[in-house]
Amino acid sequence: MTPNDRKYTKEHEWVKINGSIAEIGITDHAQQALGDIVFVELPNIDDTVSAGDSAAVVESVKAVSNIYTAAEGRIVEVNESLDERPELLNENPYENFIFKVEFTKVDENALISAEEYDAFVESEA
């Protein structure tokens, strides 16, 4: 089940907003498509990111995926446990964020609901 407590992008990321902080991670569909994730290249804390930037990179053995941010602002936290255990993104994609942005602006047009995301995945298949 795609959780309803957050928004999604067509790049297969999820965005969860709490006040001025946006948490960003990848969807279950994304982790399945990538296969076994072997490395997550995290951004640096205090990096400023603009909407649409690639802020992190997720690697499997034979593929890479850029993680774009729909939230514009400053990186305030990265999920350091992914350094040691990148497989957390396979095991529990919705419980493991990749980075958090203290945002000044969110690209609302890029965000869709869980239902819309599921329909989008369906249409892409």
């Binding site: 072997v38 490395f39 034979k62 593929a63 850029n66």
Partner: peptide
């Protein structure tokens, strides 16, 4: 190993 760094996967990146 670590092939995801390389051109055949990452291409222009």
């Amino acid at each position: 190993t670590l092939q995801a760094r390389e051109q055949h996967i990452r291409r222009d990146k």
